[in-house]
Design a protein around this nucleic acid. Structure first.
Length: 577
DNA sequence: GCCGTTTTCGGCCCGACTGTTTTCAGTCG
C-alpha cells in the first residue's frame, strides 16, 4: 500500500470509531495521523524500514505499529474488527452533508438503515421525520446531501486551477454594486494547495446584508447551505462549496490568519499566544487573565503580537516555518516577477494550438525575456511528436522567428524528449547536440516497478545532453498518482549531474510537488518552473507553479528561470561540452 | 491516540448556523 492508501484506511477507521461514539479525541488522533501520512513527503515503506515512523507528527507508538502491520500484511486486524461491526454503508451515510456521527448512528441503530439507498428511500417516504430531532426539512436536506455526495463522488477535491479562478470571479461579481471594502481569498487556495476542498472568501463591509443576499442568489449557485449575517455558504453548479464571511475591518488580520490556516499552523500560533498569556481566535487576542481584547487589522500585527515576522501564506503548514520565523531564517521566496524564461512549451509542430511566433509574442507580452520551444519527440506519437527530419525543419523556423523578433525576446530550440519504456532516449546524441536545450520526460509505462522506472529517470539524468527532467513523477491532479519512484535516488543522480528538475506549473500536474521541490533545493538541484504551455492561455498557468514553488520554500537563487539569457546560454553550453 | 520548557496525566478550538427543540443538539469548518 502507498501513503495515500494507508491514510485513507486511517480516515475510515476514524469514521467508524466516530459512528461508534468513541471519544472524539481518539477519533481526531486517527484523523490527524491520516492527514500527516497523506502529506508525508517520503515513502512510508522507506520510513518504516528505518524504524522512523514515530517521527511523523501525529503518529505515536500504536499507530506506528498499525502502519507496520498494514505495510507487512496489506491488511489491519483492528480495521477488520471495526468493519465487521459498522456496516460500510453507514460510513457512506456519515459522508452525507448534514449527517454527522450521531445521526448516522441513529439511522443505523434506530431505523436499521445501513446503505445510502435505504436512507434515500426512507427520506423520500417521509419515514425519517418520526426520529428524534428530525423533521421534513431535515429529510429534504438529506436528499440534497445524497445527491451532492453522488456528484462529488466522481471529482472529490477540485483542482486549484479551477478553484482559484472561480474564487476570483465570485469576488469580482460581489464587489460590483455592493459595499465591499477589503476582500481576500483565504483557505487552502491562498496557501496554494494543488487541490481544494472548498473556497473561503473573506470581506469587510459596513453593510453585509445585501452582499450576503447577492452571494446566495448568484446564478451559478446550485443550493444554499447557509445564509446568515456574518457567514453564508453555497454549493456551486460545479460542485464547489464556497463560504463567505464578513468581518469587521478592525478584526481583518486575525480573521484572515484564522481562515487562511492551515489548521496545524494556527494551532502553533495559538500556543505561542498562550505563552504570552493571550488566547487567540478569529476575532482577537484576549488576555487569559482577563482584560481588553487586542484587535489586529492586519496579519502583520497578528504575527508581531506573538513576536514573529510576517509568514507568507504558502508556508503556513507547520513544516518548520514558525521555527524559521523565530530564528529570522524565513526563505526569501521566489516571486512571479523574477521569472525571465519559460523553458518548456509546445506549438502546432506537435500538440500545441499556437505557432512558434505566436507563443513567442505571447511570452513577450507576459514579460519574459527568452523561451525554449520544446515540442514532443517522435516516440510521443499520440502528441504528434517530431521526427528527426521535422525537428531539423523546426530548427530553421525557430532561427527565423528568433531573428525576426530582433532581441525583444529570444527563442531557443529544444525538445521534450520521451524517456522510452526501456529507458533509452528517443533521440540519439548527434541529434540532441544540435539543440539548445533538452527536456526529458516520462509519459509512458509509469506503472513499471519502482526499480525499473527509477532506473529510467536516472539513465536520463546521466545523459549529458539532458538539461531538465519535465514533470518528474508524472502525477495528474486529481486522478493519477505519480510513478512509484525512489525520488531520493533520482535526486542524488540529479545533484551529481547538475540537471534541473521541473516544477511543472500546469494545474493538472504541479509536479514536482512542493515538498519534493523543497527536498530538491536542499540537495542543491537547480529548479525550473515552466508552464508546459500547449496554448497561449496556458502561459498564464505560471502562477500555479509559483505558488507551488513558494509552498516548497523555493528561493530565486535555486530557479534557473530567473537567470538572464547570457547565463542560461553559458550554462547549457557548458553542460553539453 | 498523541503529546510534553507548566511532561507520564490531562488536555485536545469553539462559534455560527440550522432545524428542531420550547431552551438546545447536531453539524460544520
Amino acid at each position: 500500500m502507498n501513503n495515500r492508501e494507508v491514510a485513507d484506511l486511517f480516515e475510515r477507521i476514524a469514521d467508524m470509531l466516530e459512528i461508534k461514539g468513541e471519544i472524539i479525541h481518539r477519533v481526531l488522533a486517527y484523523r490527524n495521523a491520516a492527514q500527516a501520512i497523506r502529506e508525508f513527503p517520503r515513502d512510508l515503506r522507506v520510513t518504516a524500514a528505518e524504524n522512523a515512523l514515530e517521527t511523523i507528527p501525529g503518529v505515536g507508538k500504536i499507530i506506528a505499529e498499525k502502519i507496520t502491520e498494514i505495510l507487512d500484511t496489506g491488511t489491519l486486524e483492528f480495521h477488520e474488527r471495526l468493519a465487521a461491526e459498522v456496516p460500510t454503508g453507514v460510513v457512506d451515510i456519515l459522508h452525507v452533508n448534514g449527517v454527522g456521527p450521531k445521526k448516522a448512528r441513529m439511522f443505523w441503530q434506530e431505523a436499521g438503515l445501513t446503505t445510502l439507498a435505504q436512507l434515500e428511500q426512507a427520506a423520500r417516504e417521509g419515514k425519517l421525520r418520526s426520529l428524534p430531532g428530525m423533521g421534513a426539512k431535515s429529510e429534504q436536506r438529506i436528499l440534497e446531501g445524497i445527491e451532492s455526495l453522488r456528484r462529488r463522488a466522481s471529482d472529490t477535491r477540485i483542482p486549484l486551477g479551477i478553484a482559484l479562478p472561480t474564487a476570483e470571479r465570485i469576488l469580482k461579481a460581489l464587489r460590483s454594486g455592493t459595499q465591499v471594502d477589503q476582500f481576500a481569498v483565504a483557505g487552502s487556495i491562498r496557501r496554494g494547495r494543488p487541490t481544494i476542498g472548498d473556497v473561503d472568501l473573506l470581506i469587510t463591509s459596513a453593510e453585509p446584508k445585501p452582499i450576503m443576499d447577492a452571494f446566495v442568489h448568484m446564478e451559478e449557485v446550485a443550493r444554499i447551505l447557509g445564509h446568515g449575517d456574518s457567514k453564508s455558504s453555497v454549493e456551486l453548479l460545479n460542485g464547489l462549496q464556497v463560504d463567505l464571511r464578513v468581518v469587521p475591518a478592525e478584526r481583518w488580520g486575525t480573521a484572515l490568519c484564522y481562515f487562511t490556516g492551515s489548521q496545524a499552523h494556527n494551532i502553533r500560533i495559538r500556543h505561542l499566544a498562550l505563552d504570552r498569556g493571550l488566547s487567540l481566535n478569529e476575532f482577537a487576542f484576549t488576555p487569559t487573565g482577563g482584560g481588553n481584547e487586542i484587535l489586529c487589522s492586519t496579519e502583520e500585527a497578528v504575527y508581531a503580537q506573538v513576536g514573529l515576522p510576517f509568514i507568507p501564506p504558502e508556508l503556513r503548514e507547520d513544516r518548520g516555518e514558525i521555527e524559521a520565523a523565530q530564528k529570522g531564517t524565513l526563505p526569501d521566496l521566489i516571486e512571479a516577477g523574477q521569472i525571465q524564461s519559460n523553458l518548456h512549451m509546445h506549438t502546432t509542430w506537435s500538440d500545441g494550438t499556437a505557432s512558434i511566433r505566436e507563443m513567442a509574442e505571447a511570452a513577450r507580452e507576459r514579460g519574459l525575456r527568452y523561451i525554449v520551444i520544446t515540442d514532443h519527440s517522435r516516440g510521443a506519437v499520440i502528441a504528434n511528436g517530431l521526427s528527426i527530419e521535422r525537428l531539423q525543419e523546426q530548427a530553421n523556423e525557430i532561427r527565423r522567428v528568433d531573428a525576426e523578433l530582433n532581441g525583444s525576446i529570444r527563442v531557443f530550440h529544444g525538445t521534450e524528449m520521451e524517456i522510452k519504456a526501456d529507458g533509452t532516449p528517443d533521440f540519439p546524441d548527434e541529434v540532441l547536440e544540435t539543440l539548445d536545450f533538452v527536456v526529458a520526460s516520462l509519459h509512458v509505462s509509469l506503472r513499471q516497478p519502482r526499480e525499473q522506472v527509477t532506473r529510467r529517470l536516472i539513465h536520463a539524468l546521466q545523459n549529458r545532453h539532458v538539461d531538465l527532467i519535465g514533470h518528474p513523477t508524472g502525477q495528474l491532479i486529481p486522478d493519477r498518482d505519480g510513478a512509484d519512484l525512489d525520488l531520493e535516488a533520482v535526486f542524488t543522480a540529479a545533484a551529481a549531474s547538475g540537471t534541473a528538475m521541473e516544477i511543472n506549473a500546469s494545474p493538472e500536474r504541479l509536479d514536482l510537488t512542493a515538498q519534493n521541490a523543497r527536498r530538491a533545493q536542499e540537495l542543491g538541484i537547480p529548479i525550473s518552473i515552466n508552464t508546459d504551455a500547449h496554448s497561449i492561455a496556458d502561459l498564464d498557468n505560471l502562477r500555479y507553479g509559483i505558488l507551488t514553488a513558494r509552498r516548497g520554500w523555493i528561493e530565486s537563487h535555486s530557479v534557473i528561470n530567473t537567470w538572464p539569457v547570457d547565463r542560461f546560454v553559458t550554462w547549457t553550453r557548458q553542460r553539453h561540452e
